[in-house]
Design a protein around this nucleic acid. Structure first.
Lengths: 222, 222
DNA sequence: GAGCATACCTACTCGTGCGTAGGGTTACGC
DNA sequence: GCGTAACCCTACGCACGAGTAGGTATGCTC
């Protein structure tokens, strides 16, 4: 049925590995714009310059395709952060490098961020995947806080640390979201501002400053 | 075709206002569990103890129904916070009351929270609704920070304040999320911990403490 | 240059779920 | 007690989109 008569003569027929990446690129793009359900396999295939059965042949069902996107983007993100920090740095330097890397990554991969954090969260089948990624990050932060505390000989309960870590991670995610919607903003500068909130606050907390409910407020180390 | 033979004799045929609330309750519940697309109008109708055309007659299409849920839950949330704060309180007391009210509300209305923040975010048609609500909260927080700063005669740019406000709001949302997944946790105590992160950090920032990137770090008021 | 695997297509099937047509029944005013 | 309006139902139409059947072309190996 003479397909694709016009256009360049020998263009198609790329090796599998290349096509898979093109498909993933297209999928991330379409998923991020339309959401998981809003995206159609036809549109993704179209955007990748390929037809639908190819997508099914290479990446499987829609659900599997989305998981593949999640994995690629998640891995890239974690890798970007891991590459930026060295274990021998001080606590605040590690936090700073992480923030830099993280916000830098988000600024450069807005679609990936949208897929991971704006779409995956609401969709039942994938909430678990995302929660796992998030938990790893929270535990990383909590571990960092705990390490600093222990090295100063202070004790804390796990729950308290977890809540603080959740707050820190949530704050950063929120700022990342803001960054995505403000293309004119500089990730580096945004990271500095975030560092101010996180570190100045955390440093005080680590130093023992506490806020207490109105009736018996005060500043007590323990 | 003799409908509903068994069960109580005179039970059905409730006034519109009552049925609408039942439908909204069911909708919020189902949407929060299954997500917007995963939820079916049939299931919602079923859960409300009514048949589908009634839902369409009273609340309109699925999209309109979801918006109605968003509005009711959003309004309830904002109201809960508004009821808790008085304008003549000090900045930290206002923040404290807000956090208490907010986390208390989330703890008591987990389904509503899930609909608002876990589902609405990813769905394209409603992202705007949610963003608007969020922006109102952010502006509230930013306004509070600015007011405190101005009363001490200090200047700041709008963008900086916005980022800090986003961080604070994001941190709180994240902690709320944690709270939803930890039914055993006490909202009041969680609010205290959140207050520690937010206020101890913010207080330092407001007082002029700054963190600076490694090469030229230091503490400078301006 | 025959054989084979890989890349790629068009054109379908079929389930699912939104939204509606068309009709029945109870309450309430008069 | 009769009309009318509000409440409520059982069906269905229909579009959309996931996934597939079945076939074609191209390059690579020997």
């Amino acid at each position: 049925m003479l397909a694709r008569v016009s256009s360049s003569p020998t263009f198609r027929r790329l090796p599998r590995a290349v096509r898979e990446q093109q498909m993933l690129d297209a999928a991330v793009k379409v998923f991020s714009r339309r959401g998981y359900h809003g995206a159609s396999m036809d549109e993704i295939a179209d955007d990748a310059g390929i037809s639908k059965p190819m997508v099914y042949a290479y990446l499987g069902t829609k659900e599997e395709l989305f998981v593949a996107c999640l994995h690629r983007e998640g891995t890239r993100m974690m890798q970007a952060i891991a590459d930026a920090v060295a274990p021998d740095l001080s606590a605040d330097e590690r936090l700073w490098r992480s923030l830099q890397a993280f916000l830098g990554f988000v600024g450069a991969h807005r679609d990936g961020w949208a897929v991971l954090y704006r779409q995956a969260r609401g969709e039942q089948p994938f909430a678990g995947e995302l929660t796992a990624l998030r938990r790893r990050i929270v535990e990383l932060v909590a571990g960092m806080l705990e390490h600093t505390l222990r090295s100063e000989g202070r004790e804390v309960t796990g729950t308290e640390l977890e809540v603080v870590a959740y707050a820190l991670v949530g704050a950063t995610e929120s700022v990342a979201d803001w960054l995505v919607d403000h293309p004119e903003a500089d990730p580096e500068q945004t990271a500095t501002q975030m560092m101010n909130v996180a570190w100045v606050g955390a440093a005080q907390l680590l130093a023992g400053t506490l806020w207490r409910p109105p009736n018996k407020r005060g500043e007590a180390p323990s």
